[in-house]
Amino acid sequence: MTLLSVKNLRVTFDTETGRVEAVRGVSFSLGRERLGIVGESGSGKTMTGRSVLRLIRPPGRIEADEMRFDGQDLMRLTEREMRALRGPRIAMVMQDPKYSLNPVMRVGDQLMEGLRKRDRLGRAEARAKAIAALEAVQIRDPERVMEAYPHELSGGMGQRVMIAMMLIPNPDLLIADEPTSALDVTVQAEVLKILDDLVRSRGMGLIFISHDLRLVARFCDRVLVMYKGRVVEELAAADLLHAKHPYTQGLLNCLPRIGGDRGPLPGLDRDAAWAKEV
């Protein structure tokens, strides 16, 4: 069943120096599965993710032939209707907990804010739900974390708090934008495992945005590879080692490997022709 279908998505910015097209004709559809979007900085992967929530500020503009989520046309919804979707139906986990959590508000108050204001729960009930959410992301001492300010948490803990916060309303679609790139390798593996378990057990759709092709390959069912605002290749994650497009191959080969030959790492060829619209 298709949860989200996007056809010919474009994001353009009119700047003083002319039009910048960040996303140019991206199409994909997503069921209750895990879709990875990979590319370098500036490839438009984050803009694609944000477009689904219509979180692009002027002068940026979103255009699409179609952008349907669960039967609703996202392009036609009013801002008020979009607000009802953001959070409860489609949630987004941002890259860096340092910049995405409110630094002057206790973690517990941030977790409970939505429950109190949106769901109109009482204080005790909201608190119980927030603690349960922290336990779901395997935070061992949720009582302490509830009382902590974000700067008192490590990066891995902060990212778990963000995931907990996004999962409280039980959304149908989760967009995770580089959710682990600020984390250590071992913590990264843990956070991904938590995310994976939650997505599976709740039957959510997931859009996983990352610049790390190996991570995406391990974690997703399908992968879109983006270059300069276009999808250059779409393939099953299992087939990634047999990628046909030279850009995808380049992204794989530029990573060092344990036991590699330590020669210069191959640079990434960037062919302007790949960015052309066909």
Binding site: E40, S41, H211, D212, L213, G250, L251, C254, L255, P256, R262, P264, L265, P266, G267, L268
Partner: peptide, 14 residues
């Protein structure tokens, strides 16, 4: 980014 990391690692090696 992974691709930029490769460039900086190559620079350091050189």
């Amino acid at each position: 980014d992974a691709s930029v990391q490769a460039e900086v690692l190559n620079l350091l090696a050189r």
